[in-house]
Simulated assay, not measured.
Amino acid sequence: MTRVRDFQKRFKFDRYTGFGSGLNNQGDRLLNRDGTFNVSRTGQGFWERISPFHQLITMPWTHFMTMIISAFLALNFLFTSGYYVIGLDEITGIYHTKPISRFIEIFAFSAQTLTTVGYGRVSPIGDFASLLASLEALVGLLSFALVTGLLYGRFSRPFARLLYSENALIAPFQDKTALMFRIANARKNQLIECEATVLFNYHDKETNARRFINIELEYAKVNALSLSWTIVHPIDEKSPIYGLNQADLEELQPEIILMFKAFDDTYSQNIHTRLSYNFKEIIWGAKFDPMYKRSESGFSTVLELNKIGQYQLMELPDLTKEKTEVY
């Protein structure tokens, strides 16, 4: 049974997605698996291209703390070297005579000056050493003020930690089929007024362009994401996937783009996340396993986040008896 699809007549293309339509000018997919846009920017100078504040705010915590500790050690090593250049005779209170022990003692004095602790046993007595110590104290004050601002920015920035199923499924749904994927909140914060928008992006061979169709969902909004949410797109006459088999879908080179937004009750701000599935990440003929159950005490619900992407393969309903439609 052959179904001829004329998407241009049957569907209204979304031309305001911001992704563009030129297939030959774009990469393999529009969104990476982490939700970032698959775009590399060129044509700018080095200083125009870098954005220190953005990088420091968004980098992983391990990288951020490693950078802070490295900068602290580097500054102390720099000022310790400066005291050696000036001469240790301009510093009093040094007890050790061995070179390595003396270096550690001067390094500790530099750290105490940089942090404005100043224990007092080791102190500058010469003019140049006093000037260098004053400069180091100023650098320390400015550095810690900068780090404090960055820490506040990182902690105060709303950041959603949503879990997505690794695959989208073509699953049985109300005697027909549906495209499904599942999300859940990995944190204990409350997400309310949740809304999902899903775009069906495919390759139009006639124009060699990408087309975007805003597909309908069973529920596009939920009041709260307390458990998991299986986002369902029924594959009926209103769906661009209706009547297509696996080979037809692969030929379209689809990318299913999910855009999710919600209100974070902890930060009192809106959060936004994105994800996409290409054809290789769509499982044909499967259904998600349940991922929550009653607790042993019977007084609460257990949400098993490790089951966010678990599914069972199963046969899809036979729809070949339906009337053939030619568009």
Rank of each mutant, 00 (worst) to 15 (best):
I68C: 12
D89R: 01
K188C: 09
R121F: 06
I91N: 01
L225F: 07
Y16A: 15
E325S: 04
T177F: 01
N223R: 09
T92R: 05
R3K: 08
R210K: 07
G153I: 00
M259R: 15
L75R: 00
M259H: 13
E48D: 14
N189S: 11
N270C: 03
L31M: 07
M291S: 10
L30P: 06
K9F: 10
V147E: 10
G93M: 00
T148Q: 03
R3P: 00
T42V: 08
E322D: 06
R49C: 02
Y95I: 12
A160M: 01
I183H: 10
L275Q: 08
Y152D: 10
P290Q: 11
S297D: 13
V139R: 01
P317S: 06
I241T: 05
M259S: 15
M67N: 07
I57C: 08
P172G: 01
I213H: 01
N24T: 10
N270I: 06
K9E: 11
F288S: 02
G27L: 06
P158L: 11
D14T: 13
F279V: 14
D204W: 07
T324Q: 09
T320F: 09
V326G: 03
T36L: 09
S134H: 10
T116Y: 05
G140V: 01
S134R: 07
L179C: 02
T66D: 15
F46T: 04
I94G: 00
T97R: 01
T301H: 04
L141A: 14
L252M: 09
P290G: 12
T80N: 01
F155E: 07
E206H: 12
M259F: 08
K221S: 11
Y242A: 13
G87M: 00
D127H: 14
I192C: 06
E296I: 14
G298Y: 06
F77Q: 00
R15F: 11
H63Y: 08
G126K: 03
F19D: 14
R29Y: 12
F181N: 02
P52C: 02
R5N: 09
E216V: 14
T113S: 03
L162K: 00
G45S: 13
